[in-house]
């Protein structure tokens, strides 16, 4: 893999994660627990899909083969998607979605804050904007995590179940390709291990306030960087890409 391909794949990793997470969150529109919350979820989803859009645009430039943002989003199969396993999990109940969001948002805040210092100006620019967005996302998802974790007996139990279910996908957030280290060395990419402890500390604090316990026996799942996903991504893409693929090559 040459440096250009490495960078292309690196950008796709970020873009895919945000698109899939935004897509999942957008599924709440029209189905939320309160009207206010449907607006809030849509706001976060729009931020995430917007980030994906900017990142895909940059990826097409880096690739230089004349593909468009939509080609990348709509014409790749699940084996070619590199999104975090966490992002593709079905939305579950509202607490499940908020907890997943909190785990991802805490990652995004730290990731983007590091990527803002990238020697690649386009990436640092996208990261600077996304960093601010993520800060609000995290505030929103953490407060819901706390509220629902420390709400009623039922809500606590639901949240603990969700945490038990989700925790096994958290290692995968930090996965990196060997080739990415080259990008790290040239100051373009972020070494995720550099903020892993900070992430754990931050997430632990929120979960503690939410009176939730991190499971100790979770067997960590991996594979997203090789395009090995859970079964859920295939269905998500089948739905998302169906119309775009049904009438190929036209303008929408």
């Amino acid at each position: 893999m040459n440096k250009q391909e490495t960078l292309f794949n690196y950008i796709l990793r970020i873009a895919d994660s945000q698109l899939i997470l935004g897509h999942r969150l957008s599924e709440w529109t029209g189905h939320g627990p309160m009207l206010e919350e449907e607006l809030a979820s849509a706001n976060t989803a729009l931020d995430l899909i917007g980030q994906a859009n900017s990142l895909y645009a940059y990826a097409t430039q880096v690739e230089g083969k004349g593909r468009t943002e939509d080609d990348l989003a709509y014409l790749r199969s699940e084996r070619e998607f590199f999104n975090h396993l966490l992002s593709e999990q079905p939305r579950g109940d509202f607490g499940f979605s908020m907890l997943r969001q909190m785990l991802c948002d805490a990652f995004d805040v730290l990731f983007y804050s590091a990527l803002m210092k990238s020697s690649d100006n386009t990436l640092s620019g996208i990261a600077a904007k996304a960093y601010k967005e993520s800060q609000y996302h995290l505030r929103h998802s953490s407060s819901w995590t706390e509220r629902l974790g420390d709400g009623t007996e039922e809500s606590h139990q639901r949240m603990q179940n969700s945490l038990n279910e989700l925790w096994r996908f958290t290692d995968d957030l930090f996965a990196m390709r060997a080739a990415d280290l080259e990008l790290v060395n040239t100051g373009i990419a972020v070494d995720t291990s550099s903020f892993r402890e900070a992430w754990f500390k931050q997430v632990s604090e929120v979960l503690e306030r939410a009176t939730l316990t991190i499971p100790t026996h979770a067997f960590m799942q991996k594979g997203s960087l090789e395009g090995r996903h859970t079964e859920h991504l295939g269905y998500l893409l089948a739905e998302m890409q169906s119309l775009h693929r049904a009438i190929p090559g036209v303008k929408w």
């Binding site: 939320g32 627990p33 309160m34 109940d93 629902l148 709400g151 009623t152 809500s155």
Partner: peptide, 12 residues
């Protein structure tokens, strides 16, 4: 589906 969420928010 949102009932438990609103109840939890009120309890919190």
């Amino acid at each position: 589906d949102g009932k438990w969420v609103r109840e939890a928010a009120a309890a919190y």
